[in-house]
Design a binder for these strands. Structure first.
Lengths: 206, 206
DNA sequence: GTGATTTTGTTCTCGCGTTCACAAACTCCT
DNA sequence: AGGAGTTTGTGAACGCGAGAACAAAATCAC
């Protein structure tokens, strides 16, 4: 489920606050969801709670982390070291959640050799070798839209089976490859849409 | 609707490719959705297509842009100039979609005066004055999680009614304020979850 | 001008996810 | 030990969005 990371984060926050046991109500409030939904999600993983008591924070945290594969280290490749790729390489949230950036790749040979966040930028052609060497399963695309599809194809060809795409394009990949898309400006546009609606509503109301 | 930006982007791509008229099938394929869904979404805005012909690309593009409020300029404030804030300030996708970064704010006074993407970093306390001066309705939070709620409160207090939150926290805001959340590592975690499932499935199959 | 064809706009049905509500189970107090 | 009070886990109803299917409308061929 897509909400597991949210629960995990909420549990970590609770744990750091010194909470040992929490009810589904508490955790649901911290995660921003309905408590029934939370209980159903958790029951899908197994019965890790105790009726009349609640959930052991650390125990549940470990169970969710295990289910999500967050107990192991995931090597990750980032392709495209522009502004976004730079920020992603430096983003501490990846490392703290078990993701290790093993390589930064860029097609522009003027960037090769440059060190970003302790990792050297290498040519895009090294992709296959890096994937094989580190057993990389997850790739991040932070290139311009025009290059994204080609990068994705070569990633799949090299053996990568999960892609996180920041380029504003729809990627066509074969079955068995998971693609997740994040579009930074889309979110802003949705907000602008709501603002527009609000403004329009006020206008017509007057 | 949240899919409007996707349609707009697909239309822009089609327009740049020289397409003057397109069917719902074409546009749906470009946007990566079902054609019936697309037609239903568009019909919600009005009847901008011609039966037997399709949609005029530029006309539809303008109509969607107008509906979304993308025809006007939206002033935006970014709070928190770390790695992420830096990348966001430099991100060209904002400017090209009608968003203008009018101010960069940070609580750390060592950053004040620094210029990022042509905009000077200013103290967080200037928020209220900036919002009033530029008529800012949209704020972006790129601070650490611990500071996010406080920043959000002050944003709302200053008159901002839409917040894009990159900090990994659930924000509590009053009614009438729209919050959109982007969690970069959450997406990676979802992908890792699927990888984990795949690996586990293979294991049990053997 | 009339029929064939294409494509939109809309209605209807289906399925999934969310939420409510309650029984089972555990703890605590007396 | 037994009852009162909590809290989980789950069965059932509700609602919403997605996709299929069809009617209305416009173009094209003859």
């Amino acid at each position: 489920m897509a909400r597991l990371p949210v629960y995990l984060r909420a549990l970590t926050t609770l744990s750091e606050a010194g909470t040992a046991v929490c009810s589904s109500e508490d955790l649901a409030a911290a995660a921003g969801v309905n408590s029934a939904k939370l209980r159903k999600d958790l029951s899908y993983l197994g019965s890790y709670g105790t009726r009349g008591v609640g959930y052991d924070v650390d125990y549940l945290r470990y169970q969710i982390a295990r289910e999500m594969g967050a107990t192991r280290d995931w090597p990750v490749v980032i392709v495209g070291i522009g502004n976004l790729g730079h920020a992603l390489a430096n983003y501490s949230g990846f490392r703290s959640r078990g993701f290790r950036v093993v390589a930064l790749l860029d097609a522009d040979d003027r960037r090769h050799g440059e060190t970003v966040a302790g990792v050297v930028v290498r040519p895009f052609d090294d992709l296959r070798a890096i994937v094989r060497e580190h057993g990389v399963a997850i790739g991040v695309i932070a290139t311009p839209a025009a290059a994204a599809q080609d990068v994705a194809d070569q990633m799949v060809d090299a053996g990568i089976s999960s892609i996180l795409n920041f380029a504003p394009t729809v990627l066509n990949v074969g079955p068995g490859v998971a693609v997740s898309k994040v579009d930074l400006s889309k979110e802003l546009q949705v907000l602008a849409y709501h603002e527009q609606r609000k403004a329009h509503a006020q206008e017509t109301a007057s």
